[in-house]
């Protein structure tokens, strides 16, 4: 193999390095989930870690999401630092009771006596022809729940460093890794060794309008901004990164400058995270807005299997460009 660019790696590799780092740093940290050990994880994130760390710390579990999440929550309360992998967020609905009724409530109901520092990773999103039961984006639902933090790494850097910050947090943290990002490559800045899990980030500055995006839609938003620039429209792209709690300050600062906003959300539009953000903008920035808030969301259908239909259902770069252009250049 030729000498690769230092720090150049895939999103998948960044996730793996993050886990390896966490396991090395803290002996109380362990990984559990379906097929994370022998098989190496269904998206191959944990491939090779079983050989490296042994079966006590890389634990294959039965196909029972409620059990996996519940055991993780219990271990966290007991002082461990579990990294729970749920194969896709579609299956996390089986663990919903554990996550919503236990993880999110116990610190509150115990008057702060019990912290639940569990980290639950799940794959999310469509675009890989995995059909309706493996392709949905449910992070917006979790962002509804007080008591948990919801992260959506959209860059290799966030994939590499968000996990450590999540493990350091005494609250339950959910990390949604988008399935189309695993093969995306990026180069880590050697100067950066940690990231926060509290702020949104401006990924591309601009003055004509703000595009809010996260996770799998972030690269599409950046690509759209590039196309818009060719048309003379200077779009700012803000990566939400943290879906709960939302970083209102960064979002509001951007939109109050550009006065126009397109929100990109791979969730369905009705009752979505994008709806929440649009409502906040209308609440707090009404008198700063120069145009209606526009949303680019997934069509309200179960994600189709055929490639052309799946592509049509999900937010695409062209949709973002069109929405942005209509706002910035109405004539």
């Amino acid at each position: 193999m030729s000498d690769p660019t230092p720090g150049r790696m895939t999103y998948r590799e960044a996730c793996k390095q993050a886990i390896r780092d966490a396991l090395n740093r803290d002996p109380n940290c362990f990984v559990m989930g379906e097929d994370v050990g022998l098989y190496g994880g269904c998206y191959a994130v944990t491939k090779g870690l079983l050989e490296e760390f042994g079966p006590d710390r890389i634990r294959d579990t039965p196909l029972a999401e409620s059990v996996i999440a519940g055991a993780g929550i219990g271990a966290a309360i007991g002082g461990m630092r579990p990294i729970v992998e749920i194969m896709t967020c579609n299956f996390s609905l089986l663990a919903l009771d554990q996550i919503v009724n236990n993880a999110a409530t116990i610190p509150h109901m115990s008057g702060g006596q019990f912290a639940v520092p569990v980290v639950i990773r799940m794959a999310t999103g469509g675009g890989r022809q995995l059909a309706a039961q493996h392709s949905h984006s449910l992070e917006g639902w979790y962002a509804h729940i007080p008591g948990i933090k919801v992260l959506a790494p959209g860059t290799v850097e966030d994939a590499r460093y968000m996990l450590a910050a999540a493990l350091d947090d005494p609250n339950p943290v959910l990390i949604f890794e988008h399935v189309v990002l695993y093969n995306e490559e990026g180069t880590l800045d050697p100067e950066v060794t940690a990231v926060d899990i509290s702020s949104a980030k401006v990924r591309r500055p601009g003055s004509d309008l703000t595009i809010l995006a996260y996770g799998g839609c972030l690269p599409k938003a950046l690509e759209a901004a590039g196309q818009l620039a060719e048309a003379g429209i200077d779009a700012e792209v803000v990566d939400l990164r943290v879906l709960r709690p939302l970083d209102d300050a960064t979002i509001f600062a951007s939109v109050s400058r550009t006065r126009r906003c397109v929100i990109v959300d791979e969730g369905w539009r009705s009752g979505s995270l994008s709806a929440e953000i649009a409502a906040r903008l209308a609440d707090d920035l009404f008198f700063e807005l120069d145009a209606p808030i526009r949303r680019v969301c997934t069509r309200e259908v179960p994600i189709p299997y055929p490639a052309h239909l799946e592509e049509a259902a999900l937010p695409q770069t062209a949709d973002i460009v069109e929405a942005a252009r209509a706002l910035a250049r109405p004539q």
Partner: peptide, 14 residues
């Protein structure tokens, strides 16, 4: 239902 006002963006109105 038309409000009878010309369309003026909130920011422009302010």
């Amino acid at each position: 239902e038309r409000t009878g006002r010309k369309k003026v963006s909130p920011a422009a109105r302010r």
